[in-house]
Nucleic acid binder design. Sequence first.
DNA 1: AGTAAAACGGAGGCGGCCTCCGGTCAAACC
DNA 2: GGTTTGACCGGAGGCCGCCTCCGTTTTACT
Lengths: 197, 197
Amino acid sequence: MSADEQRGRKPRADVQRNRAALLETAQRHFLQHGVGTSLEAVAKEAGVGPATLYRHFPTREALLAAVLQTRSEELVARQADIEQLGDAAEALEQWLRAMEEYFSAFSGLPDPLMAAARAQEPDNPLTIPCSILITATDQYVRAAQSAGHVRASVQGNDLFLAACSIAWIKGNGAEKESLDRLRTLIASGYRQRDTQA
Amino acid sequence: MSADEQRGRKPRADVQRNRAALLETAQRHFLQHGVGTSLEAVAKEAGVGPATLYRHFPTREALLAAVLQTRSEELVARQADIEQLGDAAEALEQWLRAMEEYFSAFSGLPDPLMAAARAQEPDNPLTIPCSILITATDQYVRAAQSAGHVRASVQGNDLFLAACSIAWIKGNGAEKESLDRLRTLIASGYRQRDTQA
DNA sequence: AGTAAAACGGAGGCGGCCTCCGGTCAAACC
DNA sequence: GGTTTGACCGGAGGCCGCCTCCGTTTTACT
């Protein structure tokens, strides 16, 4: 935005207004109907034509990424909380839970995220946030490994995939107990075996 | 079918012919374009009208279940192989791999399977095959638990979900190494901790 | 106020889903 | 073999969502 402002005109008022209305409406529709909601309905309820929506956000992923951007503040707030506690193992666990809840924000969200997580999609607007999350996860993993709590073979990418999977299963209506068992199963998988006695 | 044959007419020849053509064409389209393929295209290529397809298979899931039925023979053949080896832990591992490959038959297959796995959908045609697989998994789990190789807290349902997740991740184009690490992570999660030395 | 560029939005083509309904064909009966 | 019967077929069409063209409007700048 700085490039446009510095060299030339001020951004138009209706552009900002429409963009804000679209984001607000889209978030509500994603919440209510999942990421597959009708984009035409979003445009109509935001009071703009379909072309305006597609001009601002060329693809569904672009709109989704913009909406998620506003939601990610919550996640970085959690990060601040997590980094305060000293235990690296506990920090990793909480971070995974935070990511899982982030992935569960909208029904169907894990699918586009997983599709974007693979590197070979550089033009997918979700790829960058995904790689940021993977990098963050990797840092928590390394810290826990340094403290001897996590196996050396585990990578941040692995636990990102695991958290995404849990969110995917949750979104498909699995029971709470199944999810709890799966989470402990995964935790037992990445934790360093304690010297038994 | 026996009920129809016994009390009344012989089944019409064109019904069987159309059904077979639909199944054959649908399998090919599922293989090439995933489970979300156009059903109209399937009908057209099978040489029938759309109404005929919907009369035979009222929903996409019904068609999918019928196609999978023909594919499940391969799975029971694997079961026979697996049950020959005596090691319960090895049997469980191979069974999980067999399920995972079964779930990877068509792109996008894990999603409807996960949706059907939850019990509260009794009219979903995929629910029955899913519960059969879960029950089978549970038997392998119990056998491995009796041999002391798997933790007591693990249930067949959990590993069914895990295998489905792996297939889902695989279908989204994850790299082979990531999948290998995830599989070993899960295996470390369900295996009984060996008494270390 | 005038101007030019940027943005808007309605209309419309496309494709997929699903269903009605008039016609058709195979099986059964004579 | 001809007729009857009813199950079956398939095209037409309504609906909806996606996406884009293009004439019109809005906006910022002079």
